[in-house]
Amino acid sequence: MVMRGNTSPHARSRTPCVTGEAVGPGAVPITLEVNGILRALPVCPGATLAEVLRDQLQLTGTKIACDRGACSACTVRLNGTPVCSCMVLAIEVNGAKIDTIEGVAGETLHPVQAAFLEHDAIQCGFCTPGLIMSCVALLESTPHPSEEEVKAALGGHLCRCGTYPHVIAAVLHAAQTSKRRP
């Protein structure tokens, strides 16, 4: 009997060289579905997803701070799951669906973004895009989280301005005001 927990965010990704032949160190063509748009681009095996988003796709909303998976400023969603994009190689997520801060707002701000403004949950703002990606993912999986659940979901984020209490208040507020999802 095969049992699975939640699936790995890599489940839908395949690297472009599953034939077993070595590629690189020069650029290798891959495709990514970034904020709903299919993008074909060449990436070097050593390029992280964060670097590719910022330097090749000019999506500079995703921030790189520690570059070691220790601050979560670079959080994006990989096939829906929040991950540190600095610790993912772009080549290994060929074909994946990537959501970044640039795709969060529609015609108007996302309720989480609006709540951040309302609750003054931003000071310098460097950690904010990553925090918002985690908060949006949390409210999709857990529309009405407890304060403990919010703290657990945000446990990886470092904010050196110390906006945490405002961020937690903003998420709880966004959860209260948003319609209960089916």
Partner: peptide, 15 residues
Amino acid sequence: MHAFEWMSPQGIESA
């Protein structure tokens, strides 16, 4: 990071 090559085999033994 420095430049490196990449290989993604499908079998355990080839890896």
